Simulated scan of single mutants.
Amino acid sequence: MKRAWSRFIGVLQRMEGLYLSRMGISLPLAVIGLVVLSDLLAGRDHYLTPGIVVAPSLAAITVKWRGTLLVCLLGAGVQGALAPYDGAVDIPDHDVIFGQLFAYGIVSVFSVYISWRRETGARAFTAITSVAEAAQQALMQTPAPRVGSVRLAVRYVSAADAAQIGGDLYSVLETPHGVRALIGDVRGKGLAAVQTSAVVLGAFREAAYDEGGLDCVAERIDLSVRRHVTTGDFITALFAQFDRPDSVELLHYGHVAPLRVSPDGSVETLDPADPWVPLGLADMVAGGPTSWRAPLLPGDVLVLCTDGVIEARSPVDHSFYPLAERVGPLVAGSAPELDAAVERVYADLLRHAGGSLSDDVVLLLLAPVPHRLVGAA
């Protein structure tokens, strides 16, 4: 029930951001004016003022409760003023006019209540969103546009209702071992997925500084997941380490393969040499994954994402978003301006998906700073 009410409030908020909210109180007032004009033009033989009952209903979804109450009182006053003109008070049997007033009163009471409930719900929705934003900042710790020797840009979107955090995660840190990045996707939903994300990110932020190799970083995170995550969730993940100016070290745990976009727009999928199971499942197989190196030339951009990107479906033909086919011209030559590039990719993704996404999304673009600029401010 709470989830349904949250969705209802979200729909109303989106409506308020469109036509109805822009009309505001003018829409119900226009209805009152239209009914009054129609009644006067129709003459005394036609009793059209009961149509004013539409005005409170419209006010309930376009203005706050005080405005709705004002519309209700104004509508009642107009009906009372027109009653002598229409001859309603001259009818010997007053059941008609009493019935009209009773119906109008009931509609008015419910309209004011709906408007009040919508207003308080919207405030609660806004408060939840604000808390979610603060939680996202605390959990994700959005990095600066440049971390050490790497420029970056990120777009994080949660598909959860009334929230801005979910099961997708990322982190980019400057460590004694170079700039280390993590992107992951929790195979779970709701609060449990957020808690699992917190475990993974907390373990990464500690291990990234302490451990000498990416494999050791991943082992510590996997141990933390098995120790602290009791829901059975597992996490696909991809680790990256920028410790050389001409290459990046990658370590794969069942995640979407990264893409390398050259300045000329050509795209290469960096498939892992040794694909591995997700974090949290490593105890089910023997051994461990092997990292591999991929060259990075000046101007190259490394594109990391979660499966919410490549699994976004078109409402027209239900096809998946072809990231590898479309990211080239959107990112090519953008190494100095990654923020604009990530917004172009996200906008293209939304267009493909028909304007809305059904899963969490992380788009992370990384580009090493040219060696001569590493020490520059």
Rank of each mutant, 00 (worst) to 15 (best):
S21F: 01
L191I: 14
G355F: 05
V229I: 04
L279G: 02
A135N: 12
G33L: 12
Q136T: 00
G308W: 03
Y104V: 06
S158M: 08
W65V: 15
M284W: 05
V96P: 04
F204H: 13
L323R: 13
L58R: 12
D307R: 08
Q164D: 11
G299E: 03
L297W: 02
A324K: 12
R326F: 01
G148M: 07
L297R: 12
R244I: 01
L18Q: 12
A341R: 04
Q100V: 09
P263W: 08
E174I: 02
P336R: 07
E119W: 13
V309K: 00
G288R: 06
L139W: 04
G80N: 13
A240T: 06
T49W: 05
A312I: 00
R220V: 09
I52K: 05
A76L: 13
K2G: 11
A160K: 08
I128W: 06
W5G: 02
S115W: 00
V316E: 15
K64V: 10
G355P: 08
P143Q: 09
A135Y: 06
L169Y: 12
Q241S: 15
R344W: 03
Y321K: 03
A30Y: 00
F102I: 11
A162P: 09
D185R: 03
D307H: 09
I235Q: 00
V248R: 03
H252L: 00
R220W: 08
T231F: 12
G24Y: 03
L74T: 12
G190A: 01
Q164C: 14
S247V: 02
Q141C: 05
D300W: 03
G178E: 07
L101E: 08
Q137C: 01
A367Y: 00
Y85N: 02
L338D: 04
V362S: 03
D283C: 02
S266K: 11
A83C: 06
L40V: 13
G280K: 01
R220A: 14
E211I: 07
L182V: 12
L365G: 06
G166N: 11
V362L: 01
E337F: 11
E219H: 09
